[in-house]
Amino acid sequence: MPDLRFELVTPERQVLAADVHMVVVPGSEGEFGVMAGHAPYMTTLRDGELAVYRTAGATPERVRVSGGFAEVGANGLTVLAESAEA
């Protein structure tokens, strides 16, 4: 299965851009996981942790994010967060 293109951007810089297996995003209406081939989707974020799974079954990298929104489109997942720190 192809990897998911994932970008995490804050106003100050691009924090992360990588091809990953799965990302779990804290959406304002509940957490959701995104893998490659996800349907187009857009939601606002609540403050919480992103979990980035680089490969299947790997221990997730956690990134604290606050404010912003996530967009899933044909070219992957983009998270625009007000602030982000690993």
Binding site: P11, S28, A39, P40, Y41, M42, T43, G68, G73
Partner: peptide
């Protein structure tokens, strides 16, 4: 047209209401 199938959660208006003030700040930044 490409984004026509996008699913919004919460709906478009609420997302927009959250994003607009942020957009002003980001444009100024």
């Amino acid at each position: 047209g490409a984004s026509a199938a996008v699913e919004y959660e919460p709906d478009e208006e609420d997302i927009l209401a959250a994003l607009l003030p942020r957009n002003v700040a980001v444009q100024i930044y």
